[in-house]
């Protein structure tokens, strides 16, 4: 499990308008690029001082590459990051206000507390 890296992906995409669009249009390619080029960059350090050890598990990579937010919830990604980014990705495709958010909730409807642990 690399929940930290899952969260780092969601966080890094969510704060960059160009990456939000890139991830919406090409999820698999964006995940592949990000894992190769960005996953090990420490956000407050020069690129040369990057980490050497961060990778997704196969399940995490596939969930990200398929925009599978139910699976990402189940893998323990941070609920706030997950919701915020996915609103940015898909709210625009729904006519009614909050319709995407309500569908998101319904698709997780089989879950009751305790939810998957989000601790990193």
């Amino acid at each position: 499990m690399s929940k930290y890296l899952l969260d780092k992906f969601l966080y890094s995409i969510d704060r960059d308008p160009e990456l939000v669009e890139r991830y919406r249009d090409d999820p698999r390619g964006t995940v592949q690029w990000w894992e190769a080029e960005r996953a090990n960059v420490i956000l407050n350090c020069p690129q040369a001082e990057r980490s050497t050890w961060l990778t997704f598990t196969a399940a995490e990579r596939e969930a990200l590459a398929t925009h599978d937010y139910v699976r990402l919830f189940e893998l323990g990604s941070h609920n706030f990051l997950l919701l915020t980014l996915f609103i940015a990705l898909f709210e625009r495709d729904y006519d009614e206000p909050l319709a995407f958010q309500r569908e998101f909730a319904a698709r997780l409807g089989h879950w009751t507390a305790p939810y998957p642990d989000i601790s990193t």
Binding site: F73, H78, F80, F104
Partner: peptide, 9 residues
């Protein structure tokens, strides 16, 4: 609740 089944009720 944010990012969970009980959100936006």
């Amino acid at each position: 609740e944010l990012g969970g089944p009980r959100q936006f009720g």
